[in-house]
Write a protein that binds this DNA or RNA. Sequence first.
DNA 1: GCCAACGTTGGC
DNA 2: GCCAACGTTGGC
Length: 154
Amino acid sequence: MAYWLIKSEPDVYGIEDMRRENVGIWDGVRNYQARNYLKAMKKGDRAFFYHSNAKPPGVIGLVEVVEENIADPTQFDPESDYFDPKSTPENPRWHTVKVRFVEALPEIVALERLREHFQPEELGVVKRGTRLSVLPVEEAIAQRLLKLGGFEHS
DNA sequence: GCCAACGTTGGC
DNA sequence: GCCAACGTTGGC
């Protein structure tokens, strides 16, 4: 089982939306490096849910991958902001996963606090200028983060 | 609102 | 294939 970190803006889709829907396709990622990480995700993997563009930004919850390697349906939808005319169902360009809500923290682990505990090499999200919305988290780092956040369902 | 740090696009 | 211009992300 691997750990990841996925970013979302709470104004667009936050941890409470995730809790309400329980299960959802992580759609709308249109960056190749992030896509490659999404493709590498396996069922049972866990991902830290990160609120970006928030006050404060930080880790707010945990989700679990319940289905891997899904073609992002929004790429075929002309009405969607994420429509990609160059993508076809026969040869989809954007793959993602389905995730399930696991846990929301009562208190966010703010970016400032993350910086106190992790080096940029340890946790990519604390590095300035990291815009990637999907990042791998090493096992040992994940364990430290689980402890720091006080996660119960690790 | 600013702007650094990217990623993408398109002319050549 | 290069790279300038442009667009986006996201912290501050």
